[in-house]
């Protein structure tokens, strides 16, 4: 089943700075999608469009077959509950003046989700392997990796069908990155993930499907297995070749 469809979507900042060109994309439930490209390729703009934070200059975005219209409050309430996000910087994505419990509970309160908020927050914290005592703390009392777990807890507390993650591990060190990847892997058993990243290696660990973006255009898309084993486009080949590897000392 298709969750979000982008059909011939283009986006420009102002009149002349076009950053996305005729994007056709389908996000299907149960199949994690990776959107890969270098800085400036339009990844984050696609993410903003997928989240309904920006409107395309042309083309159509649909959620479950219905046009995504940010002015339609009732529709957007259902959309927001179903689609959540985790952002790149765990330091700026958590409000420093809010306690962790309030940060995680924000989607439940804003979307008037009829649930026991304290219990839902405790469950979300447990899902990301943080102790329940974290609820009463402020973000500055946590490490970068722990903050990213709090951000993930906020994203999953409303039990969304789709979680969009923007460069979610790029600001983390290697060991923390591995733990977050493991966490996302376990989360992907109950929710669909869209991972936006410049790191094709990270995306390949979690996604069944890949979209390769270059200068605002999709240059290759399909199953991750096919793209990684036999990349067709030169840009994809370059991306794969530039993935860091340990030198072979044998």
């Amino acid at each position: 089943m298709s969750l979000i469809d982008l059909a011939a979507v283009s986006f420009a900042y102002g009149r002349s700075r076009k950053v996305l060109h005729d994007i056709d994309l389908r996000i299907e439930a149960g199949r994690n999608l990776g959107i890969v490209g270098e800085s400036g390729s339009g990844k984050t703009t696609i993410l903003r469009l997928l989240l309904g934070l920006a409107r395309p200059t042309s083309g159509r975005i649909a959620f479950r077959g219905e046009p995504l219209d940010p002015r339609d409050r009732l529709f957007m309430r259902g959309f927001r509950r179903s689609v959540q996000a985790v952002f790149q910087d765990p330091y700026s994505s958590l409000d420093p003046r809010q306690k962790v419990a309030d940060i995680i509970a924000e989607p439940l309160r804003s979307l008037n989700v009829d649930t026991d908020i304290d219990a839902a927050v405790a469950e979300a914290l447990a899902s990301v392997d943080l102790p329940s005592g974290a609820a009463g703390r402020y973000p500055h009392e946590f490490s970068g990796g722990q903050r990213q777990r709090i951000a993930i807890a906020r994203a999953i507390v409303s039990q969304p069908e789709l979680v969009l993650a923007d460069e979610v591990v790029s600001a983390l060190d290697l060991t923390t990155r591995i733990r977050i990847v493991d966490l996302l892997k376990s989360l992907s058993e109950r929710t669909t993930l869209v991972l936006v990243s410049h790191d094709i290696g990270f995306v390949a660990l979690l996604c069944q499907d890949l979209v390769i973006l270059e200068k605002g255009r999709i240059v290759e898309q399909g199953s991750a297995r096919n793209i990684l084993s036999a990349p067709k486009h030169p840009y994809t080949q370059r991306l794969l070749e530039s993935t860091p590897r340990l030198p072979d000392f044998t």
Partner: peptide
């Protein structure tokens, strides 16, 4: 800040963003 974008994604309206964040 990103937490304002996160609040919008969480469904918080502009008045709520002023009050809460």
């Amino acid at each position: 800040m990103d937490y304002i974008t996160a609040a919008r994604v969480s469904g918080t309206g502009w008045l709520g963003i002023v009050r809460i964040h």
